[in-house]
Design a protein around this nucleic acid. Structure first.
Lengths: 336, 336
DNA sequence: TTGTAAGCGTTATCAG
DNA sequence: CTGATAACGCTTACAA
């Protein structure tokens, strides 16, 4: 169990000073090609591995923090891919943690990340985040970008999808293309900003249409099972002409419940996020696509810019969602 | 922009030595309650935050590495939840990286994690991993556990699902409950161990049944789109009595393609992993459930044990998969 | 182009 | 129970 090989060993072995050895590794100083070769060789034969931790004690670290509510939601997974790949491609490592959408967890993880001296923070705030979070981040003074969900009072850059627009697109399609006169919005946490904004978009579409459209809404968890429950409840009352769901999981649950009730195809269903399974479900799911991956990449880019002293590339970035029309909203009547 | 508050500041402010201050923070040494209070107060008023990085220079670090092929595959997402939550609950932070299932990426990330001095490594190896990976890990001498996919020649503990058993369960059900005489295995990377093992299980089921069952197999990517392509190809030839798919995404794609070909319900379909959407699809998907979350937790537990000097809790852990029977294999003929 | 030496913020050892 | 003091492994002026 030989001792750890350190830069000093390398230097000694190559017959140079620590400084020179350090220079060739970081590429910082000017070193003659001859010495560089020699040092590189020594590194190889000694099996030296750089100690990022020790280095971080002097210079800025190369670790960033990423906080998400839960890794397993497909949409967040997409976002994570974008964030993580962009960071590691730039030589940064992502300390990813999930809050399970709970504020106390979030506070705890925030503290841990801070103790780990992360150089930047990308965060999808837990539902209900407010002043506390903003204060914590602010007093920390770490480069931060909010992702996908914004927080009132935050001055940090925000990268997300235009939720109002998304809600509008869905409702507008139901109203104008299918003459729906009653719409239900299903799912999402009551005070989630996404939910509020999308509902806003839905109302806007209703207003703009000039038609007499009634809107109801129910909150649920964002799971397939919750969607199924909601679907059965829907079936118990008067079926709305169309429903827009908070995400595709809910939408699939609703569709299945309605199918089980013998009501397949009797109302028009639109999901949100356009996950991969949406195209394969029966009926295939009309959905508002948000490209989470791109969101993640954009956020990471912005942070990288700030870290390296450049101006942030985005102050605020609202990606335009797209409505992907498939069978579930009734455009392809093949489904019975 | 005051200087960073350090332990020295705290000590000075509390009128004690660095050592004492450190003791109260780590809980290591014996400190009188009076002094502890005083130090704690100073920490509070000064706004001191612990520097994990500096500490790691002396003692073992509290960050672990987690390598996965891609975060967005629902099953891996499940596993990650298990790993991450177990680690953070024990005060460890997870450096999660994804290889995109590419060997060169994996090598690079492995090196980065090593430079970050992670205390342990949980890895779902990229497809095709072999000696190189094993050697790298071995020479590194870091506590490691392989997850979900094992690698030939690895001596490290392995936590995964019993793939042979899974393949057996699926095929056995098709043969014995539904008298299938031709079975197709669809999907997965050609040399992936999971694929090979499951096929093995399928063959075993065939052999045990004593029946004359033909088996074909095709490899595809593990996506919905690939599943749809495979489904259309299937439709072009003679439809097998039953198909078992490498995962649920593929299964949903196959089912949809068959539906589009007007062949819905004409062959029995079984998926793998039992993701949330499986229960909501139409027809609902029969699937082999593997509980990725538990796998992740088990792996993390094992690593935590090794890290803290205890014996590893598992040398090798093969979780028993379960067959969840739903409509897609024809048990609920309601589907037409 | 290369070397010297002073940190970076903790922890660990060993006396008091 | 508390306090000096030496590591830990690397970066970075500054000097040669």
């Amino acid at each position: 169990m030989g001792r750890r090989v350190t830069l000093i060993d390398v230097a000694r072995h190559a017959g140079v000073s620590r400084t020179t050895a350090s220079y060739v590794i970081t590429g910082t100083g000017r070193v003659s090609t001859a010495t560089r070769e020699r040092v590189l060789a020594s590194i190889e034969t000694l099996g030296y591995v750089y100690n990022e931790g020790a280095a971080s004690l002097r210079r800025k670290g190369r670790t960033v923090g990423v906080i998400v509510p839960n890794i397993d939601r497909p949409f967040f997974g997409e976002v994570l891919i974008g964030v993580e790949s962009t960071f590691t491609d730039s030589g940064y490592m992502s300390l990813m943690v999930s809050t399970r959408d709970q504020l106390d967890q979030q506070a705890r993880l925030l503290r841990m990340l801070r103790e780990h001296q992360v150089a930047a923070l990308a965060i999808i705030p837990a539902t209900g985040s407010g002043e506390d979070l903003v204060d914590a981040i602010h007093s920390w003074e770490v480069p931060t970008v909010f992702l996908s969900r914004y927080v009132a009072g935050a001055t940090e850059p925000y990268v997300g999808s235009d939720e109002v627009r998304g809600g509008f697109l869905a409702a507008d399609h139901l109203i104008r293309a299918h003459e729906c006169r009653s719409i239900a919005y299903i799912g999402g946490p009551t005070f989630g900003v996404a939910r509020i904004d999308r509902l806003d978009g839905v109302r806007r579409a209703i207003a703009e249409s000039g038609a007499d459209v009634t809107l109801t809404d129910v909150t649920t968890e964002s799971t397939v099972a919750a969607g199924m429950r909601a679907g059965h409840e829907l079936a118990a009352g008067e079926l709305p002409d169309g429903v827009v769901c908070h995400n595709d999981s809910i939408a699939m649950g609703v569709a299945r419940a309605l199918y089980d009730e013998g009501l397949a195809g009797r109302t028009r269903i639109i999901g949100y996020d356009d996950v991969a399974a949406a195209q394969a479900s029966v009926p295939s799911l009309t959905s508002v696509a948000t490209n989470g991956r791109l969101l993640g990449e954009t956020a990471a880019q912005a942070l990288l810019a700030v870290i390296s002293g450049r101006e942030p590339t985005v102050r605020s970035n609202l990606a335009e969602p797209k409505l992907i029309v498939r069978e579930s909203c009734g455009d392809h009547p093949r489904v019975h």
